[in-house]
């Protein structure tokens, strides 16, 4: 069976660190960074990129639209 792999791109500067993407991610790919962005928010980042399935749940709930999602079958 073909395995679906995904990848996300997070725009750090726009992220406000609300964590809604983190709780919406079904595979636990996303975590909040220890570092902060230029506004002082802990931004979201793909902590476990191998788990991403490209479902786009994070991008759909993100209030600031900071996440771009890519998906492929391998």
């Amino acid at each position: 069976m073909a395995k679906v792999r995904g990848s996300i791109v997070v725009n750090i500067d726009r992220c406000k660190g609300c964590e809604i993407c983190m709780i919406s991610c079904p595979t636990g790919t996303i975590a909040m960074a220890e570092e902060v962005n230029s506004k002082g928010y802990n931004f979201a980042y793909p902590a476990n990129p191998d788990l991403c399935i490209g479902c786009a749940n994070c991008a759909i709930v993100c209030p600031d639209g900071v996440i771009t999602v890519y998906k492929t079958k391998i």
Binding site: R5, S7, P46, D50, V69, K71, T72
Partner: peptide, 14 residues
């Protein structure tokens, strides 16, 4: 910040 770089191509955009 990006996940796996090889997947990030215009044709894979969802």
């Amino acid at each position: 910040v990006t996940g796996i770089k090889e997947i990030i191509k215009p044709e894979n955009l969802v």
